[in-house]
Design a protein around this nucleic acid. Structure first.
Lengths: 237, 237
DNA sequence: CACGACACGTGAATC
DNA sequence: TGATTCACGTGTCGT
């Protein structure tokens, strides 16, 4: 037996009844189909919206709206549930759980994964939407070298790497570690750099300026051939 | 105006009416409260389950069940929605979206984070003493791309990077992530690479050969100038 | 039987 | 207005 969501239980339907538009009383529910069909609409057979507008009575219009609404709501439910199903397949394979527990597990899993991601070597490892450079004044290592971190975020043009290498070389900076992440048409580049003993903190500013001009050069050179804009809001954080 | 989910619109209620247990007819809905209250139950005031069982009429029991059901369902909804709210706060700050889009973003986010997590085991990032290359046959990502990891360990000659980039470009491989660690005059390079959909696993072998020749070239050219060996454990985690 | 989980159709609100 | 989102109460099914 299906749930009673037939028109008789709706406000609209009872409103129509109260205004004498349709007849209704005790024990008369099953008979409504024939009564209603007298006005081109019938039980469980709503007026089609394809019909000409002019011959749509107010009742028909209302019932048609109700029908659209019902179907739209069904589509909405299906959309939501399909996403829930996708989530089921993504999680550690336990596929047979109710919605609430599923979502609870999703919450937990997202937290875990974010935690992991935050522990990635090189912290802010993912490219941001805006161009940016940062050179953090570092600290001296055990053998007197100044170690610092430089990061660079821009469009994904990995052919700017040779220039970057050249820049570092010309400043007599030694790269201890380099990390690149390309995502959504953008890239982030994190460098751990060591300056020679005879360098001062000036090196930091030199590098900063060098990176800045590198970025500007890259931008102006790349202004013409714009990459497809990936509508990725996905960029983390 | 609140939705009409009052007892009058339920099957149960109409069933009772149909069996003459309560009186019902056109225009009589508002009057039900008084009629019903004659049997210790009232409109919007369901029989309390705390009452003694023996004086519960069948109607009362049914209405009480309905009330419990209603409240349980409400609790269920609240549970689900609270988890959805948690998810909203966890995602990149866009908090005001409908449920379906929220879940869609959650799906995407979980995929991304899983991808990230799988890449983190770049822990084996430190260069070894011997030259080596490895190209692990990867697995297909959610959108059909073949993702695999390539690693390369050799002497610290970061000017071999342009060649490496060129190699990847010529093979139409897309670099998702690159990590370099220079230590003790040697370097290790770990790449996460994506092949286009139309590529086969052959790409893996192509890359392997390319890296091999790249390494050999680098070795023969660099045989002369040996670098000092830095025993640095300090490399940033 | 009751209890929990789900899909459904509906009223209200928002745009 | 019409489209769309949400909360709600309900019927049904499985345990």
């Amino acid at each position: 037996m299906q749930p009673d969501n037939s028109p008789e239980s709706s406000h609209l339907y009872r409103l129509l009844a109260d205004h004498g538009m349709i007849n209704v009383g005790p024990y008369t529910f099953p008979a409504m189909q024939s009564l209603c069909s007298s006005s081109s609409s019938s039980y469980h057979n709503y007026p089609l919206e394809g019909s000409v507008v002019t011959d749509m009575t107010p009742q028909d219009r209302a019932l048609a709206a109700l029908r659209n609404h019902k179907e739209a709501e069904k589509r909405r439910r299906e959309r939501i549930n399909s996403h829930l199903d996708k989530l089921r397949t993504l999680l550690p394979c336990n596929s047979k759980t109710d919605k609430a527990s599923l979502l609870a597990r999703v919450v937990q899993r997202v937290k875990e994964l974010k935690e992991q991601a935050s522990q990635i070597p090189g912290l802010d490892a993912f490219p941001s939407e805006s161009d940016e450079i940062s050179v953090l004044s570092g600290e001296y290592s055990s053998d007197g070298q100044l170690i610092f971190k430089a990061s660079l975020c821009c469009e994904d043009r990995c052919d700017l790497l040779p220039d970057l290498i050249e820049t570092l070389k010309s400043l007599h900076l030694k790269t201890l570690r380099a990390e690149m992440v390309m995502l959504g048409g953008r890239m982030r580049n994190v460098l751990i750099v060591a300056a020679d003993k005879d360098h001062t903190v000036e090196s930091v500013h030199f590098l900063q300026n060098a990176l800045k001009s590198l970025l500007e050069r890259s931008n102006s050179a790349d202004r013409s051939k714009r990459r497809r804009v990936l509508d990725r809001k996905l960029i983390i954080q």
